[in-house]
Amino acid sequence: MADYLEVALRTILAFGMLFVAARFLGKQTISKMTYFDFIASITIGAIIANLSFNVALKTHHLVIAFTEFVLIAFFIAFLSLKNRKARKFFAGDPTVVIQNGKILEKNMEKMRYTLDYLNQQLREKDVFNIDEVLFAIIETNGTLTVLKKPEFRHVIKQDLTIAVQPEKALPIELVMDGEIIHANFVQNNLKSSWLGSQLKKRGLQLSEVVYAVLAANGKVYIDTYKDHIHSPVDEEPSE
């Protein structure tokens, strides 16, 4: 019974340490990773796994190893932030794989990057014809960035000289899960009475609203618990 209790307590400790480390190291460690991020994540995960259930290893030894590795990761991240050469060494450089519609085979060979995978990533970018591509670049985190040739790019309002209303703010969430987000009202000098008037225009009560947001263009989007959709697409089966 003592072993079960020890594993349970070590697991709680491991979860807490991993959560603190993730907050400490930042969002980069949970996003698409560079070489260094990959190594750091794998090693931290291995240490945490052993801390959770490997009772043959002493807890304080694993805690020391974990803390030391997090500090090393933080130091390297800080060094990369301050020094371009260090950033280049640890993260690598982006690699051009397509230039003006031509595949650069030598660059792909250096990365052991196959044509099948290139085509897959191009399709994910809605590109089915390589001749449409001006540049395609493999970023340091492994993702593909595509710049199409001008004649294949989407038309935007600027191209058509259509007047655009400027947007100077991010959308502001007003109601989430039926609860008013008072902090957002205070930060943006909004009044609850204003929200009440917006609901009144739509013939709604606050109790009916699951989500409401003030868009950057000044329009208010409101979603209610009752969707009034008689035949929803892809409805989840009831348990």
Rank of each mutant, 00 (worst) to 15 (best):
Q205L: 12
S192D: 02
K157C: 10
A169M: 09
I172N: 06
P171H: 08
G203N: 05
Q165W: 07
L195N: 00
L206A: 08
I162P: 14
S207N: 15
E173R: 06
L190A: 06
T161D: 04
F152Q: 09
L199Q: 09
L204S: 03
H182T: 00
Q198A: 07
S197A: 02
A169E: 14
E173K: 09
S192G: 13
Q205G: 06
G178Y: 14
M176L: 13
L174S: 03
D159G: 10
L204F: 05
N188E: 03
E173Q: 09
E167W: 04
K191H: 12
L160E: 11
F152I: 07
K191L: 05
S192P: 02
I172E: 01
N189W: 02
Q158V: 12
E151H: 11
I156Q: 11
I180G: 08
G178M: 14
A169L: 03
L174G: 08
P150F: 12
N189A: 13
E151N: 15
N188K: 01
K191F: 01
F152H: 15
S193P: 11
P166K: 03
A183Q: 14
G178A: 13
V155A: 12
T161Q: 13
D177L: 11
L195M: 02
K200R: 15
E173T: 02
P171K: 00
A183H: 10
K157L: 09
V186T: 09
S197H: 07
K201F: 10
E179A: 08
I156A: 03
S192T: 06
Q187A: 01
R202Q: 15
G196S: 08
K191Q: 13
N188F: 05
S192L: 04
K201E: 12
S193R: 06
L170T: 03
S192A: 06
